[in-house]
Design a protein around this nucleic acid. Structure first.
Lengths: 198, 198
DNA sequence: CAGCTGACAGATATTGAATTCTGTCAGTCC
DNA sequence: GGACTGACAGAATTCAATATCTGTCAGCTG
């Protein structure tokens, strides 16, 4: 399809996503990607030095989509304790939705993420920075008494790992998980120094 | 060794641990265990209905050893916020020590735990009950204002997963993990209603 | 006769030969 | 001459034959 257009990194990434969706992470080959694009696999290597680099780029695209959506929430003007809660809920909801909607594709991306340690690390740094911004805002407005927003952001992120780390994906569909989420987030927000919600 | 003694479940469990240590979870067979004991593998099946049951029993023994050690701390008479901190630190230290000391054996037991969902579930229920007791004590003494100690115990356990869940084992040796632990535990203890430590 | 053995059927794992894949590059085609 | 092809070497993966393991049970043994 559309073999007439010039071959770009973007088009290769799209084709790679499609091949991964179809074949899964174990069986998706560079030859498959080239075939889907109607080119020889040598051409793919002109844009990505290795198969690992190609997979890493696909992973980055996928992670960035979530980062961008969360950045919107982090930038809102709502009260910080509401904003923090919304942000964490949005992260949880995004992950749970992806995992529940198409478990196979989610498993595929989980494998990719496992491979691409550095890329995932950057993604986590990014998300933690968003959290730190919210906590800083809270410190300025007097809602939180944050001694070290960056450290507390990391703590909040890690303490809620159960609701965003793929290794817990199977638990996201269980009943009662919403309550678990609420109790942990309440504890953390109170720990940051905010008054308890009614 | 000691092939003259009668064959008991206990002796089989010991031999199984040894075989697992030697061969790893993938290659440890019932025949190996029987050979180590100097009996036929049919005899092993007299005490454990299946290989899975045998592995589950080994896993339970291993988990129970940790539970027992932690129960001692949970039962101490120290101030609750100190006791809670000590308990969580002991859990972290126990896991980290096992993982760092003999990574291969730890990986073996992680695989076993993965297989034995029910047994691990009971172990977690047990640990959470210990935590709940500490939080209840804190509520009685007025240090914590616990609305629902059982729920909060689960929350504290899950929020500190990074420091006891085997899926994070590789991070336990990294520098800075101690600080991460402290920030999360501080946040949780403050969230439970305790005053901040100096 | 209670506890154990060892042969057995079906399921699972191992092995090595044959295939497919990755990454390169000299050469082709606009 | 810059983008692309396709043949190639070595690495990684299949696949099927082969071996091992699990779980059972009739019969042995002390």
């Amino acid at each position: 399809m559309a073999a007439t257009e010039t071959l770009t990194a973007e088009r290769i990434l799209e084709a790679t996503e499609e091949v991964l969706r179809r074949h899964g992470p174990a069986k998706a080959t560079v030859v498959d990607v080239a075939r889907a694009l109607g080119v020889s696999h040598g051409s793919v290597y002109r844009h990505f030095r290795t198969k690992a680099a190609l997979r890493e780029a696909v992973t980055k695209r996928w992670l960035d989509r979530t980062s961008e959506r969360l950045a919107v929430i982090a930038g809102e003007e709502t009260p910080v304790e509401v904003r923090l809660r919304d942000w964490l809920a949005a992260l949880f909801e995004a992950k749970r939705h992806k995992a529940g909607d198409d478990p196979e594709l989610f498993a595929t991306y989980s494998v990719l993420a496992e491979e691409s340690g550095a890329t995932v690390g950057e993604h986590i740094t990014d998300l933690t920075a968003q959290l730190a911004r919210i906590i800083e805002d809270g410190a300025e407005s007097g809602t939180f008494r944050a001694a070290d927003p960056a450290a507390e952001a990391r703590a909040v992120f890690q303490a809620t790992a159960r609701f965003h780390d793929p290794c817990y994906a199977r638990e996201w569909q269980q009943p009662g998980i919403e309550e678990d989420f609420k109790v942990i987030v309440d504890l953390l927000i109170r720990g940051l120094g905010a008054p308890v919600r009614p």
